[in-house]
Lab assay of single mutants.
Amino acid sequence: SIEEEIKKAEEAKEKGKTFIHGDFVATTEELLDELLKRLRKKL
């Protein structure tokens, strides 16, 4: 679910890890923020 993806992305951000969502690879905090923004729009 979208909620689960958001939670996983937030955890990755806290730990400074890379998060992959489909073909979107978030390797930096900026990219994770962008991904979180996109996911929240889908809610």
Rank of each mutant, 00 (worst) to 15 (best):
K8N: 08
K8Q: 10
A12F: 02
K7Y: 04
S1D: 11
F19I: 15
D33G: 00
L31T: 06
E29A: 14
E30N: 05
H21P: 12
H21F: 13
E14H: 10
G22D: 11
E5A: 15
L39Y: 00
V25P: 04
L39Q: 00
T28A: 07
I20R: 00
D33E: 11
G16K: 13
E10C: 10
E14P: 01
L32W: 07
I6L: 09
A12E: 03
E4W: 05
K7A: 11
K17R: 06
E29D: 10
G22K: 01
E30L: 08
D23V: 08
T28M: 12
V25F: 11
L43K: 04
L35H: 03
L43N: 03
T27F: 13
E3I: 12
L35E: 03
E5F: 14
E34S: 00
L39A: 02
I20G: 04
K42Q: 14
A9Y: 01
F24D: 04
L31M: 14
I2W: 09
G22T: 03
K42D: 13
K15C: 15
K41Q: 14
A9Q: 02
D23K: 01
E14S: 12
E30Q: 10
L35D: 03
E4F: 04
K8L: 11
L43R: 08
F19S: 13
L31A: 12
K37H: 09
K7E: 07
K15Y: 07
K8M: 11
L43Y: 02
T18P: 13
I2R: 07
E11H: 06
E3F: 10
E34A: 03
G16H: 11
E11F: 03
E10W: 04
L35M: 04
K17D: 15
T27G: 11
A12Y: 03
K8R: 12
K7L: 10
A12C: 14
E30A: 12
R38L: 15
I2E: 01
T27P: 02
T28W: 09
S1H: 09
K13R: 12
I6M: 05
K7P: 02
E34P: 01
A12G: 00
K7S: 06
T27L: 11
I2K: 05
L31I: 06
V25H: 10
K7Q: 11
T27C: 15
L36E: 04
K42S: 12
E11M: 07
E3A: 11
F19N: 14
I20D: 11
E4Q: 09
G16F: 06
E29G: 12
L35T: 01
D23N: 10
F24W: 11
K17W: 12
R38C: 15
E29K: 13
E10R: 07
K15G: 10
D33M: 05
G22Q: 05
A26L: 08
K13F: 07
E30F: 08
L31D: 14
I20N: 05
K15N: 13
A26P: 03
F24H: 06
E34Y: 06
L31R: 02
H21T: 11
K42E: 14
I2F: 04
A12S: 03
T18E: 14
L36D: 04
L43I: 08
A9I: 13
E4M: 10
E3R: 09
F24A: 02
F24K: 00
L39E: 01
I6G: 02
A12H: 04
L32C: 01
E30I: 07
K41I: 11
L32G: 00
L36N: 02
H21A: 06
R40V: 11
R38W: 13
E34H: 02
L35S: 00
L36S: 01
G22L: 11
V25R: 01
D23S: 08
